[in-house]
């Protein structure tokens, strides 16, 4: 069995939005401890990992199931959540559906078809990073918007103790520099200078679910995947994005 009650449907909507930006389908691995999902995007450039511990739910009861979901359909349903709605997720094993129930002034129920998406057994690779930066999401997203004006990819750099977001187009350049004492920076754990280049659209998708005051943990090295991690509504979201390299 699986039944979970979430006090704010809107918070869960953010989690689904974050995943559906990058993935078409997902397999929620539910167990008595909570919900986990790990998947790569179709081009294997990005990895999404989510962990929603049972403590994040108002009520939670489950044994082990793999629940395969079409994210586009789930996202559309979650878009129908109203501000004060509670969300109930419930597996109907007989009909092979996931019931998605909004409880507000009325009780509205959707029965979502399950897909045969097997769990990937994918792990977030245990990469050691020389640099770890905790930064306000709003500040990082703003820097990406600046970069977006000049090119479709962006370099994330650590240089001389500063965190730099740099883009160079055929004609124009943009640069945002964060020093350690910036109000936007919570902490910088700097080991060495580094530089990796990334597709901007993916970075924007990965950070879309974060509110501007949320804290992003960004791990970077040289020509290494970037790891971006944040929490929303008691859930942990981790993204990995492969770099672009000089060819």
């Amino acid at each position: 069995m699986f039944k979970a009650v979430i006090s704010e449907a809107k918070e869960f909507k953010k989690i689904i939005d974050a995943a559906s930006n990058l993935l078409d389908e997902i397999c929620f691995e539910v167990s008595e401890d909570g919900i986990k999902a790990r998947a790569m995007d179709p081009s294997h450039v990005a990895l999404v990992s989510m962990d929603i511990p049972k403590e994040a739910f108002e009520e939670y009861e489950a044994d082990v199931h793999d629940i395969g979901i079409d994210l586009e359909a789930f996202k559309k349903i979650m878009n129908r959540a109203k501000a004060k709605d509670k969300l109930i997720l419930e597996l109907d094993e007989e009909k092979n559906k996931l019931n998605v129930i909004f409880k507000g002034t009325a009780r509205r129920k959707f029965a979502l078809a399950l897909y045969d998406v097997s769990s990937s057994n994918l792990q977030v690779p245990d990469i050691e990073y020389p640099n770890e930066i905790l930064i306000k999401a709003g500040a990082f997203v703003d820097a990406l918007k600046d970069a977006d004006l000049v090119n479709d990819h962006v370099a994330l750099k650590v240089d001389d103790g500063k965190f730099i977001i740099y883009a160079k187009g055929d004609l124009n350049e943009s640069e945002t520099i964060f020093e350690e004492d910036s109000e936007d920076i919570i902490s910088m754990n700097i080991g060495e200078n580094a530089r990796s280049t990334f597709n901007l659209e993916y970075l924007k998708d990965m950070t879309k679910a974060a509110s501007s005051d949320d804290i992003l943990k960004i791990c970077i090295g040289t020509d290494m995947p970037v790891k971006i991690e944040y929490d929303i509504g008691g859930a942990n979201l981790t993204f990995l994005l492969a770099p672009r390299i000089e060819s």
Partner: peptide, 12 residues
């Protein structure tokens, strides 16, 4: 010119 790597290159 840059080229996009996939994550497989980093899974070992």
């Amino acid at each position: 010119k840059t080229k996009q790597l996939t994550l497989e290159a980093f899974f070992k």
